[in-house]
Write a protein that binds this DNA or RNA. Structure first.
Length: 545
DNA sequence: TCGACTTACACTTTTGAATAGT
DNA sequence: AACTATTCAAAAGTGTAAGTCG
């Protein structure tokens, strides 16, 4: 089932936790009150299993959910070369795009699928001698945002029917991005994570009944860049991304370059010339760098509200870009499947060392960078719970949105706690009883203060101060629907307008599938650690109320 | 001077409305 | 009238290269 199109299952086997919060409520919630029109488990090709709903509910709890990364081989290719993702002010899609095949859901239970991208470590990198090297300490983490799949919430049958694509997810380096794109720092290493949350009786999450699991595919880690550093990555993108077909170096590649340069005859492109020059100057070097994850036995993070978070980190573990130090887990090594003509590999000369620069954004609006992701990876034992939360998301009215976003010269919107607080450092390291974070409105996009599950390393419990972890939640549907709902005079097409001001903000007209996002908050906390077996390259954690 | 970043560009695929055919 | 298939233009997604910025 997961073998089509390079899909490979990457899962974790684990057991359900003992009695926890919301005892008596099943991970598989009762029939949702807001059924998606036209969706039914039986009609949508739900996986074979007990016919009766009751039986299905018993057999298919959230811990049985399995997720396979689509085009895993392609991801591996990139991973081996050291995946880079372009980030732009206007937002750039990821390629390869994040697509998964989900199985094991209860066909009739509603789930919310979302992605967040967390720092893989607390380093900043530079590309030197054709490999990535640590160039200093990471800048403060950007506001943590979630990308909620536009279909959310939907039934298990819906999710399992076909690939779940997050291809519309966009990355930006604009700290003041009003469109809900995921904000990242350039030259930093990140790890996307998929969270599957069981919608509660109200098609929301955050109630006692909420259960969730997290899936991490290490091969999807990447370094964010504003322009590609490693020519191998450039070539992989060009080779595999249909939109970049125009740059493919077929027989007439240089002819195209000639066209671009208004020449009537073929010329050697700069890139190829550069490759040839540099390649002749540099000898191949093993992809080994002195990078190591930070060793932080115990880290304390001071938040803007004065709250502390405590992280007890185990030994670091690298995420496995091959230009980084080897990973501890051999399963995370991948072999090159297809080598390109070495002549096309550009080996850039060593760039000047990075001089650590202070963040241009007011630090008080950001938390310090979270513990390295690799630390989480090392000891994935984890169990989260969800505590009831107040509504914390906001939906601005259309006029408000138009008013804010359509004016080019408007000063940046005031930073709100809700939107601009940073990614919470890896709270899963110890933890935590999340308290409600007061909802604060922000007119230009939809956010939520949330607490995402982290990947802890040890079992520990401590009280969690309120407001220590905020995530802005962005539902892509709000953006994609803009187009579907027709043009808006206030928001002309993106091109030709100043970046950051030209695009339509998320539509305020949200359908039922998203309403929960504006009335519910998402709080995932861990009460006790749970040992489970980690499958290849995947870390999962879950909770079942 | 250098590296990171922004922007415009040409090219491509995707999307959706309009139209034609059944 | 309803549905499906086709066409086509607009929208959106690419990497590149030149320019800007600190």
């Amino acid at each position: 089932m997961l073998q089509d199109k390079g899909l490979s299952e990457n899962e974790v086997a684990f057991r359900a936790p003992g009695p926890g919060l919301g005892e008596g409520s099943s991970a598989t919630a009762p029939e949702p009150t807001l059924a998606a029109p036209g969706l039914s488990g039986a009609a949508l090709g739900s996986p074979p299993g007990p016919g009766p709903d009751v039986a299905a509910a018993v057999e298919q709890t959230i811990e049985n959910i399995k997720v396979g990364l689509h085009e895993k081989e392609l991801w591996k290719k990139f991973h081996e070369a050291g995946t880079e993702m372009i980030i732009t002010k206007a937002g750039r899609r990821m390629f390869p795009s994040y697509k998964v095949k989900v199985t094991g859901m209860n066909p009739k239970t509603k789930y919310i699928l979302l992605i967040d991208i967390v720092p893989a470590d607390d380093h900043r990198y530079k590309f030197c001698d054709n490999k990535w090297m640590v160039a200093g300490k990471a800048e403060p983490a950007m506001p943590g945002r979630l990308y909620v799949h536009p279909d959310s919430p939907a039934t298990g049958a819906h999710w399992m029917r076909q690939l779940v694509s997050f291809q519309k997810l966009k990355l930006t380096n604009n700290h003041l991005d009003p469109f809900g794109h995921i904000i990242l720092n350039s030259m930093h290493k990140y790890q996307p994570r998929l969270h599957i949350v069981k919608a509660d009786e109200n098609n929301a999450f955050g109630s006692k009944n909420t259960a969730f699991c997290t899936h991490v595919f290490p091969e999807t880690s990447f370094i964010s860049v504003t322009s590609y550093q490693n020519h191998k990555i450039t070539q992989l993108k060009i080779e595999n991304n249909p939109f970049a077909k125009g740059f493919r170096g077929s027989d007439d590649s240089d002819l195209r370059v000639a066209r671009l340069q208004s020449k009537e005859y073929p010329v050697i492109s700069k890139s190829i010339m550069r490759q040839r020059l540099v390649s002749s100057q540099l000898s191949a070097k093993p992809d080994v760098s002195p990078l190591h994850g930070a060793h932080q036995a115990l880290q304390h993070y001071q938040y803007e509200n004065g709250a502390h978070m405590q992280f007890t980190a185990a030994e670091p573990q690298d995420l496995g870009l091959n230009t980084f130090p080897p990973q501890r887990d051999s399963s995370l090594f991948y072999h090159c499947l297809k080598r390109r003509d070495s002549a096309r590999h550009l080996e850039l000369p060593c760039k000047r060392s990075y001089l650590e620069a202070p963040s241009s954004v007011a630090d008080e609006h950001y938390f310090r960078s979270p513990p390295p992701y690799d630390q989480q990876m090392l000891s994935p034992s984890y169990c989260s719970e969800v505590t009831p939360r107040e509504a914390c998301m906001y939906s601005g009215s259309a006029p408000e949105i138009a008013g804010v976003s359509a004016v080019d010269d408007l000063p940046p919107p005031p930073l709100s706690c809700n939107m601009w607080t940073s990614v919470s450092p890896y709270t899963g390291y110890s933890v935590q009883t999340m308290e409600t974070v007061p909802y604060q409105p922000f007119p230009t996009h939809f956010t939520a203060t949330t607490m995402m599950p982290r990947l802890p390393t040890i079992s520990a419990q401590s009280s969690q101060p309120p407001g220590n972890a905020h995530f802005s939640v962005y539902n892509q549907l709000s953006q994609s629907q803009v187009r579907e709902r027709g043009p808006t005079a206030s928001f002309p097409r993106e091109r030709g307008l100043p970046p950051g001001c030209e695009r339509k903000p998320p539509s305020p007209h949200l359908n039922a599938a998203n309403e929960f996002l504006y009335s519910q908050s998402f709080s995932l906390t861990r009460e006790s650690s749970l040992q489970y077996h980690s499958g290849m390259g995947t870390v999962e954690n879950w909770t079942d109320g």
